[in-house]
Amino acid sequence: MTSQTLLSHVASILDAAGVKRGAIHDVHTNTHLLRHEVTTNLDATVYRPLFCLILQGAKEVGTSAKLLKVRAGQSLIVSHALPVVSRITEASPDRPYIALVFPLDLDLLRSLAPAVMPTFDKAASDPFSIFRRDMDEGLEDALLRYFVQCKAKNTRHLLAPITAREIHARLLIGRHADVLLRLLWHDSAASRINEATREIQSNLSETIVVGDLAQRIGMSSSAFFEQFKAITGTSPLQYQKDLRLLRARDALRATRAKVSDIALRVGYESSAQFSREYSRKFGKSPRQDRNIAPVEQQQCIADPAPR
Rank of each mutant, 00 (worst) to 15 (best):
V116F: 09
Q238I: 10
R198I: 14
S191P: 00
A230I: 05
E60L: 09
I262F: 01
A115D: 12
N203R: 14
G22N: 10
N291W: 09
A248H: 02
Q227L: 08
T29L: 03
D121H: 05
D289N: 13
V148S: 14
P127V: 00
T119G: 09
D134F: 01
R165F: 10
S129T: 00
K66P: 09
P161D: 07
T40P: 09
V61A: 08
T119F: 08
R256I: 08
L245P: 03
D15I: 03
A16T: 04
L181G: 12
V84E: 04
L264S: 10
I130Y: 09
E166P: 06
R244T: 07
L204N: 02
F282V: 07
Y47P: 02
E296T: 14
I54V: 13
P286S: 11
Y47M: 06
V101N: 05
R307Y: 10
N154P: 02
R71N: 12
P96L: 03
H176C: 06
S191E: 10
R247L: 11
L108M: 12
L106S: 07
A257L: 13
Q299M: 03
D121G: 10
Q56R: 10
V78T: 06
A189K: 08
L264E: 13
L42S: 13
Q240M: 12
S75W: 00
L106P: 02
K241W: 13
R287W: 01
E269T: 14
S275H: 12
T232D: 00
E277R: 07
L6Q: 04
S129G: 11
K258H: 15
L33I: 06
A190T: 10
R216I: 02
I208C: 12
N203H: 10
E37M: 01
V179L: 00
L14E: 00
A72P: 05
E37K: 09
A142Q: 01
N154R: 11
A305C: 11
T119Q: 08
A214P: 01
A293F: 13
A16V: 05
A81W: 05
N154A: 10
T163H: 04
N30W: 03
F147S: 08
G211F: 03
V101G: 00
A164E: 12
K59T: 02
H176D: 01
L183T: 05
I217N: 02
R145N: 02
L50P: 11
